[in-house]
Amino acid sequence: MNYFTELLLTAAAAALVNNVVLSRFLGLCPFLGVSKKTETALGMSAAVLFVMTIASAATWVIDKMILRTLSLTYLRTIVFIIVIAALVQIVEMILKKKIPSLYSSLGVYLPLITTNCAVLGIAIDNVQKGLGFAVSMASSIGTSVGFGVAIVLMAGIRERIDGNNVPDSFKGMPIVLITAGLMAIAFMGFQGVL
């Protein structure tokens, strides 16, 4: 198979078939918490795309260069969470200093992402599967695009739900969860595509 086709397929599979929120249940907190408005949902997904790509690049290199060469792979969990937490802090500082315009749009979401399980989950998943650098980049970009698609769609639906007559006990979180379930069914349809 052509190398580029493989990269594209990996990204598409990560975005649609194994959608990070709807079929793997990672990153549920921001998915349910920050999906009230399309604008904030877009901001959150941009921040996730940014952090997830950088984090999986950094963790991949650290895993390859340090953990594997010294056969310390059992320290992965500890090392990765520290690297990700530190990285988010550094990225925040750099953005604040160098690109204030980007910081003002992503800034509020960055601290929320440190404890986002999707970022750590994808970083660990990539190295556990033993993916190459380019493939794991494709997979993390695909995953964060999938997160973006899910959260933006959810925000759009929630804006519509606001005007609807929902039964009293289903107002608020229950109807959002039902919507998420229906979206998950729709995304299961992609399993036949790839």
């Binding site: 249940f25 289903f170 979180m173 229950p174 109807i175 969860l177 039902i178 998420a180 379930g181 229906l182 998950a184 069914i185 299961m188």
Partner: peptide, 8 residues
Amino acid sequence: PGAFFVLA
């Protein structure tokens, strides 16, 4: 999807 429905 079942997980979401149960929680809902």
